[in-house]
Structure formats: C-alpha cells, structure tokens
Design a protein around this nucleic acid. Structure first.
Length: 554
DNA sequence: AAATCCCCCAACCGCAGACAT
DNA sequence: CATGTCTGCGGTTGGGGGATT
C-alpha cells in the first residue's frame, strides 16, 4: 500500500485537506511544504504525470491541479538542475531568446534540466538589469531572429526597431522579441554582407565546430536523419568529461592580453529528456491516450544556417567602425580557431552605435596567429549544474536543507519522513478524508527509471504503512505497459533552429514520433558540441579575474 | 546598525489550445 | 458543433535575503 496523502499535518498550517466547514475542501496556496512535496512526488512517481486534478481528488493534497503540476515541473521532477545557469546555458538562453522570443517553454526544452520558470526569471532579471543600465539586450554576435528575417510589411518599422535594439534608461520597453514570430528588421542586419562569418579550412575542425553544418558531408538534413544517424565524429567525444583534456574548447572571444575570454563550458550530458516534454492525456477510463504533442504549432520563423552560426559570427564590419579595435583571429595549436577582441570599455554604450570593441577585424595573416594552451575560461563559476535530482536523492536522508532561498532542498531528510509519518499516524488515529473510491490510474514506467533506488524510496517512506487503513491507497492501481513516448519538442526545435528540415520547415508529428530518447540525447550533444567544454580546469582557477560574461559588463 | 535597493525565486493568475463529452 | 475540462504557457507578484548606502 502506498500513501499519497497524510491528512492534516503539523506543518504550520500547511495542511492537506482543509475543510471549510461545509464539507468542501479549501485548496491551499502558498509555499509548498516538504510533506506536500512527498505526497506529490510519490503520487506522480506511481501514476505518472498528468491528471493533475485527479491528484487532488485522490490524495489528501489540498492543492489544485495547476499548483501540483507546477510544483512537480519546477521542483520535483527528476533530473532538474538547480543552481545558477552555467555560462553556456546563459549563452544558449540568449541565443534562443534571440530566435524564439519569450517562448520559455521552448527554450526550456533545449536546456535539459531547466524549467521555463527558471529561464523566465533569469531573463526577466537580466532584462531589468540591462534596461536599467541601458545596455543591449543581445550580445553582438547574437542577432535576433526577427532581425535576420525582416518582414517586408514591417520595413517601415526599421528605424524604430533599430533604436530599440539598445536599452535607454528612460525608454519604455526594450526590444524584447515578442511572442509574435514576425520579424522586426533593424539596421543591424541591414547590411548582411558586412557580417563576418567564421570559417575554417580545417575539415576536422569544421566538423567539430559545427557538426551539423550543412558544409559537413555527414550532415543530416532532416529531423529523421538527425535522429537516425550518429553525429559526425568530433575530434573527441562530446561526451567526454569537461574535466578531461580531450575536448578542447573554442574560445569565442579571446583577446591578445588574455584578460578577457568568453567561452562556453559544455553542459553535462543529458541523461534523460526533460519530463516536461512528456504530455499525456487520459480518457474516461483513465488509460492514457497516445502521447500528444502539445507543442505549440504557432508559426516559427525559420532560422537560417547563418543565424545558427551566429554563435561564430561577428556581424560587424570593420568598415563600419572607424575606431575599431581589432579583433584578431587566432589559430590555436588545437586547430581551433578563435577570435580575440579587446573590450574598449566595461560597459556597452547606450547609443545605437555598436560598441567599438564589437567591430571585428579579420586578420588572418600569420602575424596575428597565436597559440593558446589554455584558452578556456568559463564565464561564470557557478554551482555544479549537474546536480542530484531531488527525487533521486530521497534516500539520502542526511542531506536535507530547508527549502529556502539559497538552500535548495537536495533530498528528503529524516525529519521530513518523520513529519510525513507523524502526519500519517495522526490521521490514522483521527481518521482522514480518504476518498471512498478511486478510479484506476495508470502507471508510467517512464517515470520510474530515473533511479534504481526509487523503490527504496517508497519502501523507506511508506512501506511500513502497507497494512494500515490509511488514506489514499492506490494498491488497486494497475500498471499499464506499452506506453509510447512521443517526444519531439527538442528535436523539432533544434531542427527548426538549425533549419535543417524541409524547405517548408514543417515537421510532422509522425516524423517526430520516430525520434527516440537516444536520438534526443544525441542531438543535444551535437548541439552541445558547439560549446566545447572547458578542458583546462586550471584555466578557470587561474583566471577568475579574466572571466567574461555579459553580466560582467555591468 | 539601520534603511534601502536589488536580485532571486517561488508561486499565482489568466488565457488559450487540445481534447472529451 | 457547442460546451466543459484539463493542461500548458506566459505574465506578474510578493517575499526573503544579500548588497549597498
């Protein structure tokens, strides 16, 4: 028997079923307690995601379905990362925002372990800061999609949009790409020929830098190909540890004095697709319908390959910047190409002109060739991004911290278990609001493969109540097998982002349904391989003052 | 040391789409 | 086809805590 609700607890008013005296249940609001988390996690792990309203009915959790879903998605689901965004995550967010606008969920789909809420919060904070400081919303090498694909009907807005490209302290709104896919052209892209695109003559390097590049012979051209082919073999495996030295990095910014470097540590390997990608519906008999792609079908502006390679593009011509400080091109001893730039100031100008140091000057001559033995410096030394999911750490009963700011709960503690058990015991003695009858719910094996110790969690947490008459038993629930997972958001997004798909840009659900977990991981690694990992930890350690990030431009 | 500012984060709300009836 | 329900998404708010004045 598994308990899903333990009734009124002693968590300071955060009880579960709260009666308003009239027999109705008053749903609780506000912060979640550990006991509530336990109930929710146990229920979801047993029954799978979805059917959130039924959760409220079948447990004694006095939370609305929306609240449960949010709590699960943002805090309890496995493989969630906690802590600050890493440098490459920040970079990817910026890039994705440039392409997608405020499509937090879509962005989150491409940031494994991150939630839309996290990304949204990050962006809004960043937005506010940049707005306050009058700094540009996007780094110079990131061109918003709406500027890459100017819409003819909006040509007249060009100047206005251009002026909004940079924040002004007294302006009303920044030029945040709206949810609308309609592009808003600006002067920034008025002269595409001025763009400087990264090139390399080394085939191996090209593959490594851009394994999905259309210039790469083995480049898959369709999402199905993306999912069916192994990625081009990089010089070293993208799965290699960031700590080893097998996967050299690509410093995107690297000045001659080695005092400002801008690189992106590669994210940890994706072990599992975000559960947010799983969508299920239940029919009347509570058997899951086919996994439904609920991904927005809103128009998605195709992203050109050029925009994709804008990671490696400095779109500012030297001719446009009379006072340009040269950005030099380096060929490293690792056959990785890098740019060097010399920040002319610690902040962006508030005018519509481009920062002088952003204007590139391609100097491929040998005089500017330099060799970097430790070219990697992370933007930000943050908490480990690959953290133990809370659910997976439930057995670690000694590693509990309060769920307060800065003290993310890593696991469930003895005290929590005691709390739950005490509540259960109290309810056992005083009776509880056990639902008289529960419908058969479904069991999702997909939610049970996160950790081999999951069963231990249940046994530890609830096992001793098996024989009790306690509430919210789901012992009569039968697992349902053969569920298939249709998970395509990330593939589609990446494919669209890379514009490798068909000319029409359409990716049918049927195509996407062929995508497998493994392929998903593969694609993410391909994508991640664009941001080679820091191969030299010592570089980070020794260059704390040299880290470069947009945040540092404050 | 107190007040203020700012950042971060969690959570809520309203809306819209998908789906079931 | 209309209506209701469920779910997901994006916008917003409010509190806690650190940093700054």
């Amino acid at each position: 028997m598994i308990l899903y609700g333990v009734g009124t607890g002693n968590d300071g008013g955060s009880t579960n079923h709260i009666s308003d005296g009239g027999g109705r249940v008053t749903l609780k609001k506000g912060p979640w307690t550990a006991a509530e988390d336990e109930i929710l996690a146990a229920y979801v792990r047993e029954n799978g995601e979805g059917n959130w309203n039924a959760l409220q009915k079948h447990t004694c959790l006095a939370r609305c379905g929306k609240s449960c879903r949010l709590r699960w998605a943002n805090h309890l689901r496995p493989n969630l990362k906690k802590g600050s965004f890493t440098g490459d995550e920040e970079r990817l967010i910026i890039q994705l925002h440039a392409q997608l606008g405020n499509k937090w969920a879509r962005m989150a789909a491409q940031l494994p372990g991150r939630t839309d809420n996290e990304i949204k919060n990050y962006w809004n904070t960043r937005l506010k800061r940049l707005q306050r400081q009058g700094l540009p919303l996007y780094p110079p090498d990131v061109i918003p999609n709406h500027q890459l694909h100017p819409h003819p009907q909006h040509q007249h807005q060009q100047q206005n949009q251009h002026q909004q490209m940079y924040f002004h302290p007294h302006s009303s709104q920044p030029n945040t790409p709206s949810s609308s896919p309609l592009p808003s052209p600006t002067q920034l892209n008025a002269n595409p020929s001025s763009s400087f695109t990264f090139h390399t003559t080394n085939a191996s390097t090209a593959n490594l830098l851009h394994p999905l590049s259309p210039h790469t012979p083995t480049t898959p051209q369709t999402p199905s190909q993306l999912s069916s082919r192994p990625p081009p073999q990089p010089l070293s495996s993208p799965l290699s540890s960031p700590l080893n030295n097998q996967y050299p990095t690509l410093p995107l910014f690297n000045n001659n004095n080695n005092n400002t470097n801008f690189t992106f540590p590669r994210p940890p390997p994706l072990l599992q697709p975000p559960s947010s990608l799983l969508a299920r519906r239940y029919n009347n008999s509570n058997t899951p319908l086919n996994y439904t792609n609920r991904v927005s079908t809103a128009p998605f502006s195709p992203v050109s390959r050029d925009s994709y390679t804008s990671f490696l593009t400095l779109p500012y011509s030297s001719s446009a910047a009379p006072n340009t400080q040269p950005i030099t091109y380096h060929n490293t001893n690792n056959n990785y190409s890098s740019f060097s730039l010399n920040p002319s100031s610690s902040s962006y100008p508030t005018t519509t002109s481009f920062p002088s140091f952003l204007h590139s000057h391609y100097t491929p001559n040998s005089s500017s060739t330099s060799f970097h033995t430790n070219p990697v410096y992370s933007m930000k030394q943050d908490l480990p991004s690959n953290q133990i999911p809370q659910i997976c750490a439930f057995n670690n009963v000694n590693n509990f911290t309060d769920n307060k700011k800065g003290l993310h709960r890593r696991s469930i503690s003895c005290s929590l278990l005691e709390d739950v058990m005490e509540e259960a015991e109290a309810l056992d003695g005083g009776g509880g609001g056990r639902p008289p009858k529960r419908r058969q719910l479904t069991y999702s094996p997909l939610n049970n493969h996160h950790n081999n110790n999951d069963n231990d969690f249940f046994s530890v947490t609830f096992g001793q109540y098996d024989s009790s008459e306690n509430i919210c038993s789901l012992q009569d629930l039968k697992p349902k097998e053969g569920e298939t997972l249709e998970m395509n958001t990330m593939q589609e997004d990446i494919a669209k982002l890379l514009d490798w798909g068909s000319d029409s840009g359409e990716i049918s659900n049927r195509q996407s349904s062929a995508v497998t977990d493994e392929n998903l991981v593969l694609d993410v690694h391909q994508f991640a391989s664009l941001f080679p990992a820091d191969s030299t930890p010592a570089a980070n350690d020794n260059n704390d003052n040299n880290n470069f990030s947009w945040d540092d431009l404050d």
